[in-house]
């Protein structure tokens, strides 16, 4: 009995460790395939790309912890990216207003998802898939398929700097991600909200009977997921300069893969954001290694799927043993 417990308690941390070790191994492998791969510049670049996945994965972690899922990531992210450039027109003066409105849009869409799940009792897959469609239609329709005059604007310089500006030689984006890791881990680990999240993920009915505000918490978690998608969209425009159509599409699979790699239990209740962040890093490292090996685009898509399945099978076995 005691042994079982120790294994159990260690599992989250162990998976985080696996993900980190996988990332390091991949850098070593990459160095062999493509000398310079594990150099400082290259690692920074890869981690920066991983950070966008990591930010979306933060939102995904929140909802997966209660056994939900957010399929509205692609077009919330894309919509946010386009909304930012349209609102700011690339001017720093309009940046704050554009940022607030864009983040608010993300949180608002997430909130609607949450209301659908918590109050209308629509399955999370259905409501978030529908919301993704709604955002796709709105984004395409309102921007005329990204043909509008403002659509070609650049991200405000301040947003671009928030991503690229080196601090002690490291891009600011990585500090941003570090801050998110610290804050999200603290919220999940130390606060009432975090405890409630895990409780709902373990057993929503029992939590409700213990006085936990299940609906309120659920709505908030989905709102956070929307917020993080929007944040990732904003930073991606800052990274690339301009918005494009379909830029959010890869992030759905990547965020779910990161969450699964990081050991967040897909039915909820177990896992940590640190794990998901490590998952994002190792996933991005994997993709970079494959790119260094001249793996074509479609290969990536196959790899995401295979990685998710293999890990689900491995972890599923472990759950069964536990």
């Amino acid at each position: 009995m005691a042994r079982f417990s120790r294994v159990h308690l260690g599992r989250d941390r162990r998976r985080t460790l696996y993900a980190l070790i996988a990332a390091i191994l991949l850098f070593v492998v990459g160095e062999f395939v493509h000398p310079g791969f594990a150099g400082l510049d290259s690692v920074e670049a890869i981690l920066t790309i991983a950070s966008f996945v990591g930010l979306v994965a933060a939102g995904q972690t929140f909802v997966v912890l209660i056994g939900g899922i957010d399929l509205s990531v692609p077009w919330v992210l894309n919509g946010a990216a386009i909304l930012l450039v349209i609102l700011s027109l690339g001017e720093d003066g309009r940046a704050l207003y554009a940022l607030l409105l864009t983040l608010g849009m993300g949180a608002g869409i997430g909130l609607l998802n949450g209301v659908g799940v918590a109050f209308l009792e629509v399955p999370a897959v259905v409501i978030t898939l529908a919301m993704n469609g709604i955002m796709e239609g709105l984004t395409l329709g309102l921007s005329g398929g990204l043909t509008c005059a403002a659509c070609a604007s650049y991200a405000p310089p301040v947003v671009q700097r928030a991503v690229h500006e080196p601090i002690f030689g490291v891009p600011a984006e990585l500090f941003l991600w570090l801050a998110v890791i610290v804050i999200v881990s603290f919220v999940l680990g130390r606060t009432r909200f975090g405890r409630h999240t895990y409780a709902i993920g373990n057993n929503a009915r029992a939590s409700y009977l213990a006085g936990v505000g299940v609906r309120f918490t659920t709505v908030l978690l989905y709102a956070l997921s929307g917020l993080f998608s929007a944040l990732a969209g904003i930073l991606l425009v800052g990274f690339g300069g301009q918005a494009s159509l379909g830029m959010g599409t890869p992030y759905l699979f990547q965020s779910i893969a990161a969450v699964v790699i990081g050991g967040v239990y897909i039915l909820g209740g177990r896992g940590s954001y640190l794990g998901a962040a490590a998952g994002a890093a190792s996933l991005t490292a994997l993709v970079s290694v494959l790119l260094a090996m001249n793996m074509p685009d479609y290969g990536r898509s196959i790899i995401y799927g295979v990685v998710i399945l293999v890990l689900l099978l491995l972890y599923g076995r472990e759950e069964g043993e536990g």
């Binding site: 897909i266 074509p296 479609y298 599923g316």
Partner: peptide, 30 residues
């Protein structure tokens, strides 16, 4: 097989295979 024998969640399984199938499709017809 993944859902029935592997006892995995249908949503994640089919999301993962969606990604794989889409990749294969592009391989067949770039």
């Amino acid at each position: 097989l993944l859902v029935g024998v592997g006892r995995l969640q249908p949503i994640v399984v089919t999301l993962a295979t969606l990604s794989i199938f889409q990749g294969l499709a592009i391989r067949v017809l770039p």
